[in-house]
Amino acid sequence: MLYLTVLLLAACNNNNQLPIYGIKKPITQVIGGKPVIDSIDYTIPPFTFYDQDSAVVDSHTVNGKVYVADFFFTSCPSICPKMKKEMLRIYDKYQTDNNVVLISYSIDPVRDSVARLKSYAQKLGIDNTAKWHMLTGNKDSIYSLADAYLVSAAEDPDAPGGHIHSGNFVLIDTHSRIRGYYDGTDTKKVDKLLTDMDNLLKEE
């Protein structure tokens, strides 16, 4: 009986580590004159876009920080408002924590200009751009970045708003590794995201 209890407790404690998503990349290093094959974790590739204040936001902006990324567009009628509402919870919670950043990539960069993103951000009450960047830029780059985050985003003339995309919030750690996916339209999943973020911040 005691043995079972100890086993159960041990199982509980080991649950805090978040997985690392993506396929590891094999690399060959030369150590002590001999080639050694190792693997490195999948990481988000470099990116460069503009935020609602026209500032350049790139991989350096998020380097060393835990961040949450999602894909949206301002004229999205269906899931986006709810996603933004949930994202606001994260924004409010980590206002004073400099290790956390939020990034929302627009998948309709043609219509979502910097000015339009600024207006949208203001409507949501986002005063602190440094905490929550809404990005626009080259359309192809954004779509390939969506692939890199392993989420879906595509143009679809039949969809309301003309685009379809996943409602996922992606949690990234300080080494640009994907640590979790959470349905941004589900309050309970975002509750879990907030808990996981606290754990991740403690880890780093």
């Binding site: 009628p77 269906s78 709810k82 509402k85 606001l88 409507k123 949501l124 339209t185």
Partner: peptide
């Protein structure tokens, strides 16, 4: 999902 369960909407959006 947009107008919120309490009917308050979402900020000024």
């Amino acid at each position: 999902q947009c107008h919120s369960e309490d009917g308050n909407g979402i900020r000024e959006l």
